[in-house]
Design a protein around this nucleic acid. Structure first.
Lengths: 234, 234
DNA sequence: GAACTAAAAGCGAATGCTCGTTTTCTATTC
DNA sequence: GAATAGAAAACGAGCATTCGCTTTTAGTTC
């Protein structure tokens, strides 16, 4: 709590918590509209209505629409970072991490909304340099987390030491980006199917010399329809 | 007096080629401005100026800005499809295809421009259902081409038969999408570095039981000095 | 092949509308 | 009682698009 002097001229200042709550209220409203209609097709009036406020109120907490967009985009990247970080912290093999990540994204609160916002933020960053810088540094943190995990994997003998951790991290990041993209277009895309395929690829199943003589994907090795593998192979 | 009946059916019609050329001229101009400033920050006047025409002329060939955006987005997806198809037609192992694809994208005419347009089109498709449908079918063709290649790989013994070709194709598509995204943010990102890392991942180098006892990366490239890569500037 | 005609191509000022933002005023808070 | 929080109306800019007009083009006639 801030101390307030009862006798000085300053007085009715809203608590910091109150202001933060208002900002969140506005951002939540913006997230709904932006996810549904896009950053540019959703008007400020839409956001204002959704928040149940007035223009004056909204503009008290945000200087401009761009500032709201930036906040939304940043929050969206934060969601990605947190999800990836959390998954890495389970200290499981990378093949398993990759297998489970899509599901982790799918089961987030407001998953659909968050993914749509992320994809739009990527496009938006191309036309808004200030946002681009912010987003890049956010993405770099994700990449760095992945890179450190890969480096650790090299120390532990999980990962080939000849692999470049920075570049390999980009590949794992691409798997995440690809999932988010494909899922926003096809919300019915099954996260586990995608995760399993990613895991298979990481296990070298698209490359003969590696999968041959391997239990491969457990379960029935016959059909293409669904290789329902249990990831517990190891 | 004059007999006018003889003039009844004259048609000074410009050749179809001419009309097509005009459309191309407008689309080329739009591509330049859209890539630089984004679909929504670039105004029609910008496109019109870039094309060296007048509003009336442009609106003779396109009914609306959205129609131009759709045409640009479609063309952009076509570029991706053509590049992937071409690469697949070399009939090389998938690990090599994946290794070379990034370079193929980087060396296209107007590569930078095309990639930026593609990324923006992805975002745009979320707010424009008509465009979304068009783009999805374009992307499906890419996925299908990849899927067929994977199925063929299973017949040839290159790919584990237990792998689901549809889902695996999504993973390869994700590698492409990830490259395009990451390259638009960091144009200095080296295509070959990315490709090599992708190839390594496909060979199972992130997974102990597979890389052990393997010659590792194709080209010479880095030995295990894992750190040298420049994540470089921001 | 020159003159003529009608339609298409092209121009650019004008239009109307939407949107982000500002400003003014009232209500609330301590 | 003082100043902020919030509501509501209004503003001005910028936008996509249109429309009335002029210029160009291609086919027809002689």
């Amino acid at each position: 709590m801030k101390e307030r002097s009862l006798y000085s001229e300053e007085v009715p200042k809203v608590s910091d918590n109150y202001a933060a709550a208002r900002r969140d209220q506005i951002l939540a409203a913006a997230a709904v509209r932006f996810a549904r209609e896009g950053f540019h097709r959703a008007s400020m009036q839409d956001v204002i209505d959704e928040a149940g406020l007035s223009p004056g109120a909204v503009y008290r907490y945000f200087r401009s629409k761009d500032e709201i967009i930036a906040a939304i985009a940043l929050r969206s990247m934060g969601m990605i970072e947190a999800t990836v970080r959390e998954s890495l912290e389970t200290h499981r093999p990378l093949t398993e991490v990759v297998a489970e990540l899509p599901r982790a994204f799918s089961t987030l609160d407001h998953a659909e909304e968050s993914m749509r916002l992320a994809v739009q933020a990527w496009g938006e960053s191309l036309r808004n340099p200030a946002l681009a810088a912010t987003m890049q540094s956010a993405l770099n943190q994700v990449r760095e987390a992945l890179q450190q995990r890969i480096t650790q994997g090299q120390i532990d003998g999980e990962v080939d030491p000849a692999v470049n951790p920075d570049h390999a991290a980009r590949i794992l990041l691409a798997l995440v980006q690809g999932f988010l993209l494909q899922h926003t277009w096809e919300p019915t895309l099954d996260a586990d199917d995608y995760g399993r395929a990613a895991s298979d690829v990481l296990r070298g199943h698209l490359n003969k010399r590696h999968w041959a003589g391997e239990p491969s994907t457990i379960g029935s090795a016959s059909t293409h329809t669904a290789s329902s593998s249990s990831s517990s192979a190891d």
